Amino acid sequence: MKKSFLTYIIALGIFGIINTELGVVGILPQITKNFQISVSQAGMLVSMFALIIALSGPFMTLLFSGVNRKKILAGVIAFFAISNLVSAFAPNYTVLLIFRILPAFLHPVYFSVAFAAAASSVPKEQSARAVARVFTGVTVGMVLGVPITSFVGDQFSLEAAFLFSAIINAITFIGIISWIPSMPVTEKLSYGKQLKVLVKPQLWLNIATACFILAALYSVYAYLAEYLGNVTNMNGKTISAMLILFGASGVFGNLQAAKLLSKNMIKTTIYYPLVMGVIYLLISYAGAYIIPMTIIIIVWGAVFTGGLIVSQTWLTSEASEAPEFANSLFVSFGNLGIALGTTTGGWFLSQLGIHQITYSGAVFLTLAFICIGLKIKLFDQKQDKIILVKKTTND
């Protein structure tokens, strides 16, 4: 069995989980109507899910750190299938909310184990590419999850929309059970050893970098549809096509970023905020023109998705002794970055107008670049000097 096939099974699970998290956005109007609740109450199905991920991620990952990885992947995806099945036939809003909240606790566990399992399934120099294949599930889930769920809900029913996610989860469960080999934890790290990585100041600079990059990405992307409608003057159908184009180029960009990280992680990370900054500059100058904006969207989608794996690789590189815990930190602080970015982007939009939305992204890119520079200057260069001194002494 090819290792790439195994990672794609895991990626399908990522797609199912992302679809469970974000797909509900496309059916919120039907939920408000079906359960006779307000829009703000329906919105809690999204906000509560994200909040629980951000708060519980590292702790839940620590709790399951000694369990066979195959059992974790299968168990979590089975729970998501059950929660979607119950959601499809929930008798009231309370039951629906409960079965949205419960799987959110396990969301970061699957992600953390998935990234670690993918990376460990191949030689170290190929780990970034293996993780990139898993990230494909994130990309496809983010771009296609909402429109597919919305389409199923509109064409069939609210129940069918939840059942769609349940079926994806069930297929993944069968794939994990049938084809993924047992992955026992050969050396269980104590909670203390895993938590010990948190005392490393360079890790916190990497965490801040990842958080700021995600904030930079989502402070603009969250309002892409509104920007295309109000600034580029695109209609609804064209905007939907642009979002799909954005996601399609993102799959390509994800894999290309992995290749660059495999060659030189530090250089790729340094250049990332600079390249993203150029794209935001182009948007601010050419965003009103349909053809230039279409070209920008293709490039933007590729660079945008590359930022996910750049952030993940940069953060986890400073905690290789506790990979699953490090990945849980990425999931938690990544969600924190998304929340920070969307909130700040919304403030820029309301105070300065949609034309200036790229400025919010530029602010976070600057902060990310500063954190990268500090990390390299204070720690990487210092480490290089220590190695040079040791080598000279030995000679």
Score class of each variant (00 low, 15 high):
residue 1 M to N: 12
residue 1 M to T: 12
residue 6 L to E: 11
residue 17 I to F: 05
residue 25 V to I: 15
residue 28 L to G: 01
residue 31 I to M: 04
residue 34 N to I: 12
residue 38 S to A: 09
residue 47 S to W: 09
residue 47 S to M: 10
residue 52 I to S: 08
residue 52 I to M: 08
residue 57 G to L: 07
residue 61 T to C: 03
residue 65 S to G: 09
residue 66 G to H: 11
residue 71 K to W: 13
residue 72 I to A: 12
residue 82 I to L: 15
residue 88 A to I: 12
residue 90 A to P: 02
residue 91 P to K: 10
residue 101 I to D: 04
residue 101 I to S: 03
residue 103 P to N: 06
residue 109 V to K: 09
residue 112 S to F: 08
residue 114 A to Y: 09
residue 122 V to C: 02
residue 123 P to E: 11
residue 124 K to C: 08
residue 125 E to I: 04
residue 125 E to L: 04
residue 127 S to Q: 09
residue 132 A to Q: 07
residue 134 V to M: 01
residue 136 T to K: 12
residue 141 G to S: 13
residue 143 V to W: 09
residue 144 L to Y: 12
residue 145 G to D: 05
residue 157 S to N: 05
residue 158 L to I: 07
residue 163 L to C: 09
residue 177 I to W: 04
residue 177 I to T: 09
residue 180 I to W: 10
residue 180 I to P: 11
residue 184 P to M: 11
residue 187 E to T: 14
residue 188 K to C: 13
residue 191 Y to F: 14
residue 195 L to G: 03
residue 208 A to C: 08
residue 211 C to K: 05
residue 213 I to V: 10
residue 221 Y to E: 01
residue 222 A to G: 02
residue 229 G to C: 01
residue 230 N to Y: 01
residue 243 L to W: 07
residue 247 G to I: 12
residue 249 S to D: 10
residue 260 L to D: 12
residue 262 S to W: 00
residue 262 S to L: 00
residue 266 I to N: 15
residue 275 V to D: 04
residue 281 L to F: 14
residue 289 Y to D: 12
residue 295 I to M: 08
residue 301 G to Q: 04
residue 301 G to P: 01
residue 306 G to Q: 01
residue 309 I to V: 06
residue 310 V to D: 02
residue 311 S to P: 08
residue 319 A to T: 06
residue 326 A to C: 10
residue 326 A to H: 08
residue 331 V to H: 13
residue 334 G to N: 05
residue 342 T to V: 14
residue 344 T to L: 07
residue 349 L to E: 01
residue 351 Q to F: 12
residue 358 T to L: 01
residue 369 F to W: 13
residue 381 Q to I: 14
residue 382 K to V: 15
residue 384 D to S: 14
residue 387 I to M: 10
residue 388 L to E: 15
residue 393 T to V: 10
